[in-house]
Amino acid sequence: MKIKFALAQINPVLGDIEKNRKKHLEFIEKAMEENANVIVFPELSLTGYRLKDLAMEVALPPQSDFFNPILKKSKMIDVAMGFVERGNDNNVYNSAMYIENGKIKSVYRKIYPPTHGMFEELRFMGRGKKVTTFKTRYGNFSILICRDLFHPSLLFLAYAQNAEVVLGMSNMPLRGVEGKKPAIEETVEKAVDTYTSFFSQFIVFVNRAGFEDGMGFYGGSFIGTPMGKKLGFAGILKEKLTFATVDTEEIYRKRQLFPLSREEDLNIIKENLDAILEANNERV
């Protein structure tokens, strides 16, 4: 299956969901003109990142009419976007949803919201518990959000459910200016290279651009492929829309050349995890 992705490396306005919805619609339009199949926005693309007390003010339930104009557009193009979710449990979450053919296909809640140094997410939002894979018209997809991508265990859970494409939606600020590239970019590329190589998945990494309170989100969006290619690189720091077409046949080829997935035994992992958990619980 060939899939043409649009990587929407946008710079949302902090806390202004009206302006940001307009920006989503504009980028969706542009992606449709290029006949893209799926457009992927960054984490919290509807709201901006450093919300703090604004989180509860911009939170929306996924069923909100506010999303209707975007749902309408999704007849022709699938849309993955980030927002602050007001959950049925009256908590708010850093979430992302996948919209296909006028309907919400899946909502994912970030599992590891970082809370240290400049990151304060758990102070204002809850955390998700589940990595899921959902079947789209283009294959099995999973969503992971930003810090989640630095936990290989979550990539493994997507792989274990046969995710062919992982959408890595991010708001990563730049740090580390000693080298040729920002240190954070090196870290992400290393991680994506490793995951795509051993899990034979595509990772569509979309990171935002722009500044909030001095934090500068570095952009650098790209697609990593199972054969180690890097497609659709959007460059750093600036708002950009790039396109890249992937062929999921590459997963089949890679998995025949390097049949790790055939060797995988989830029962072994489960037995080991159970034993580890039991031992850890005893220790406490």
């Binding site: 902090l14 806390g15 450093r50 909030e212």
Partner: peptide, 9 residues
């Protein structure tokens, strides 16, 4: 009362 510096709504 924790709003970001760059809060412009």
């Amino acid at each position: 009362f924790l709003y970001p510096h760059d809060f412009k709504v």
